[in-house]
Structures are given as structure tokens and as C-alpha cells.
Amino acid sequence: MGDLIPLVVNGGSILVFELSHVKRLRDLGIVGILSGTLPKAPQQNVFLGLPLRLSIYEAAWLVNQSLGVLVDGLRYNEQVLNISSLKEETVELQGGVEYVVTEDTYSQVDDEQLAKICRDAEISVDALMVRLFGSVKTRQHLLSAAFNYFRDRDYYLMPGLRFGGDFVAYPGDPLKFHSHLILKVLEQKESFDLLQLVTSGRLATAVKKAWVLVGESSTQRNKQNQKPSLHCFSIEWAGFG
């Protein structure tokens, strides 16, 4: 299609409301997390529905690849509503009439209008980072770099808090694969605790994953475009001893 997917920023969350967009994103390798209540089963949160919630790293990758655009939620919604809200209509009811059928006056937003709205409501990735984290810190840059590094190698990445890491990387669609990598991103010269290594190693073995340390390589820092170049070590329990 070639059109940019609008990534709606509401407060601190980046949301995608259209199902077609969610499908496109999945094909592109962005999984996200469904975060809305399912109308058919509202009193549980094991199964959730639209909107899809993206992390800042996924959104940043999409913007850099010219696949999506961050739009300010308020302005975006206002303008979409201007076009596609139900029009008021007065209908006179005659006696004995039980129901009235009216024309569908809800008009879809077409692609051109959407593109115009998106350009109008656009916000930049850096501005959003400042809003979320206070300032653009090196750690966020590093996490973005790590995300891009693995995404460009066709890994699907999801949040890694459940496994004690920064991301979890799958070699393909998460639903198809069960063994993957837990990524922990370290800044240059940042140290990690060896006891943590024991815990993470044990956890990784128990859930059939490998632990990967991702860090900047001190020798090859590309000063020109400030992009850190990355180096990885994978750690797993040796199985003996």
C-alpha cells in the first residue's frame, strides 16, 4: 500500500486502532501487545483486544523505516471525527410507525484525507522520548539501537520484563516458535552481577531460552552519526558441574 500507518499517541501510550493496520504490522515483524477489553468477555484480562499497544522502540523503528508516523492523539481524533462522525438528521415519525431506517451517513476517511491528517498531527520520535523519559538518555538510544539491530535481522521482539531482560527475541512469529533469546542491553563499561548471571542462566534454561548480553563495542564507535555499534555474547548453562 505504501501509506504510512498512523501510530496514535495518547498520553504516554502509542496505540493502533485499525485491525487492518495491526495485520500489516504483524507481517512487518512488529507484534506489540493487545491492550483493550474484549467486548465479548469484559470481566477477564487473559484475552484482550484492540487497540494494539506499541513500545517506543517499535514505533521508532517504524518511523525510521518510513512505514509509520507518530500522530498526536487529540488532534488526530478531532480531525477524523470531523470527517466521519454521524450527521444529524431530523426524521418525522408518523403515527403507528415502529421503526425508522435511515441512510448510513457515517463516511469513511479515505486514504488521502488520512495522509493529510497524519501530516498535520505528526510528532517526532525524539519529542515523544522527551515526553516519556524526561530527556533523551543514552540508555534509550542504546535500547533503540539494540532493537533495530535485531529487527533488521528478522527477529521479532517483545518486552522482556517477565524473563528478567530488556527484550525477548524470536527468530520468527512468536506464535510459531518457542525457543528464543532474552536480551539484556548494557551500556559501555556497565557491569552486571555474576549472581544475576546464575539466576538468568537458570531461568533461561528452565524456559528453553538463551541469555544474550548486548552492548556497545568500545572499539568501533561510529562518531559521525552517533549510532553505537553493537556486540553480543550469549550465555547458557553448560549442563555439567
Binding site: 520484563l161 517477565r162 528478567g164 544475576q196 539466576t199
Partner: peptide, 16 residues
């Protein structure tokens, strides 16, 4: 205090 991700990992191992 340790980082939250590290703490979650430990809690998960111990729970396991």
C-alpha cells in the same frame, strides 16, 4: 536494591 528486571527474574526462578 537491585533492578526490577533482575528482581523479577529471581522471583520467577524461586517460584519455579
Amino acid at each position: 536494591w537491585t533492578d526490577w528486571p533482575d528482581f523479577m527474574a529471581l522471583a520467577r526462578v524461586v517460584g519455579g
